[in-house]
Amino acid sequence: MTNKESILLSTNGLVKSFGGVKAVNDISLSVADNTIHAIIGPNGAGKTTLISLLSGDLTPDKGTISFAQKDITKESVEQRAKQGLARSFQITSIILPMTLLENVMLSARGRERHAYQFWKPASQNKDIEEQAITVLQQVGLWDQRYKPASDISHGEQRQLELAMALAMQPRLLLLDEPMAGMGHAESEKITGLLGTISQDKAILLIEHDMDAVFQLADTISVLVSGSVIASDEPANIRSDPQVQSAYLGGNSC
């Protein structure tokens, strides 16, 4: 499928249990540069747990994670973020009292070595502001950039959520249901945007919108009860009888 050099992220035997339940059970997968690897599976399959393990919000009980040929299993969330691993959250996680522009500028600045700047107003950094504005234009929130994040619709907050991950200019995007809660038009727009972004970035995508998944993904892994039951190209996944019975169940929603 992809040669070894271009593999950006790989996991080996990841296990995470909550109480007696193995939310993630022995997962080994990889994401190559400039590709989209989609994870699908029913609710409770462990998809968000997997993302949290990769982002560092959770630590695995067993197994290793390597990113850009380096073991990052023990590194913190912020260390991983600095190396180019950006996550978006399934439950919108934005700074509500700040404006959209401030939110995105905050994430554009996160990539810098530090923000121990005590005197010059944050809003006067033209370079960061331009980066933020570019991203806001991409997701279609540019004209609302001076509104507080609490004042925009739920769908728009989802777009902001994505914008904050994009503004980090990461090497790998971990997207946890980016389209959930968006209207049809926005979903299509974001699907197009993700396609464009994946030309020079790797994306690990969790999404319930099967149209988007089959349109975008280079590889699809199917997660059921914490285990990967199939991992292949979209066409093969669609025709896999095991997947159909476990998840796709005839209708594609």
Binding site: D57, E78, F89, S93, M98, L106, S107, A115, W119, M168
Partner: peptide, 27 residues
């Protein structure tokens, strides 16, 4: 000045959403 500066933005952001601030790369 502190609260308008990048430092202050990080402090305010951390109050409202620490998880997100960490995932943006802020310790």
């Amino acid at each position: 000045r502190l609260i308008q500066a990048p430092f202050g933005r990080v402090i305010i952001g951390s109050k409202h959403n620490e998880e997100r601030m960490r995932s943006l790369g802020y310790n």
